[in-house]
């Protein structure tokens, strides 16, 4: 069994050290979605384990079902086959324990200010109330550097700032896992780099778990601690790699280039043999 092989590989990689129980676990997950004319198979029997405080990357070319996988973890797309669990419980519907950050800037509620947007999920779920919610919101807004803009409406913010609000809104909820769907893809290169650094900075402080979808090899290596490489049409697992060692400071080193080349080869050269 594939699942058994992965578990064995994980044990082997860890050596004698016991690994913590996975936070999110996928076993043989097949995802399908319907268009008006077709049933499209997005992923085929995908397995992976996200451990606590992992920066877990789903990487692959377009059409490899990485966003569908993220939506499935978010609870928006039930698997037609296989098991998807969070903390051992099966995922059946969306919930605030898995806060999602989308690619689009238009994910903020336009009728609420920055502060209102960050408060909204806390109050809507009743998880934090009154003073506590307000203090948390102000704290997290300050952390993403938007304290001056707390009372501003989203349409007055730049793309990068909207993204930071979305991240702040998700973080304020202290979710078990943060789901990010190509959050920086629509940003310009300079802003993207700054956002990546800020995200890593926040992770250094808070050590939250995240599941991050991207189609950029460079971003995957920089942001991720572990990378799941997927093949397209439908998405199947190609590899799971470690990228803990890399950050913006050593992009120019040989090892970075080597990993990048390896992923490149996995994605583009082995297509024939992967079938």
């Amino acid at each position: 069994m594939e699942a058994g092989a992965i578990a064995a590989a994980a044990r082997g990689a860890a050596g004698a050290q016991a690994m913590p129980a996975p936070l999110v676990s996928a076993r043989g997950v097949t995802l399908q979605y319907r268009t008006p004319q077709h049933i499209v198979t997005a992923t085929w029997r995908v397995d992976f384990d996200v451990l606590p405080s992992d920066r877990f990357i789903l990487l692959g070319p377009s059409g490899c079902g990485k966003s569908s996988l993220l939506k499935a973890v978010g609870g928006f797309l039930p698997p037609v086959e296989g098991r998807l669990t969070i903390n051992g419980r099966p995922i059946v519907q969306p919930g605030p324990d898995r806060m999602m950050v989308f690619q689009e800037f238009e994910q903020l509620l336009p009728w609420k200010t920055v502060l209102g947007n960050v408060l909204f999920p806390m109050r809507a779920t009743g998880r934090f109330r009154g003073r506590e919610a307000m203090e948390r919101a102000q704290d997290v807004i300050a952390r993403v550097g938007l304290a001056k803009f707390a009372d501003v409406y989203p349409h007055m913010l730049s793309g990068g700032m909207k993204m930071r609000v979305a991240i702040a809104r998700a973080m304020a909820m202290e979710p078990d896992i943060l789901l990010m769907d190509e959050p920086f893809a629509a940003l310009d290169a300079l802003t993207r780099r700054r956002m990546q650094e800020e995200l890593l900075g926040l992770w250094d402080q808070l050590r939250f778990t995240m599941l991050f979808v991207t189609h950029s090899i460079e971003e995957a290596i920089l942001v991720g601690s572990r990378i799941l490489v997927l093949s397209p049409h439908p998405g199947r697992v190609c590899a799971e790699l470690n990228a803990e060692a890399f950050h913006h400071g050593n992009v120019d080193q040989a090892a970075f280039g080597a990993l990048s080349k390896r992923i490149h080869r996995l994605l583009f050269e082995d297509r024939g043999t992967a079938e």
Partner: peptide, 9 residues
């Protein structure tokens, strides 16, 4: 926006 709403339950 719909998904953002359903995400928070």
């Amino acid at each position: 926006l719909r998904m953002a709403g359903r995400n928070v339950g």
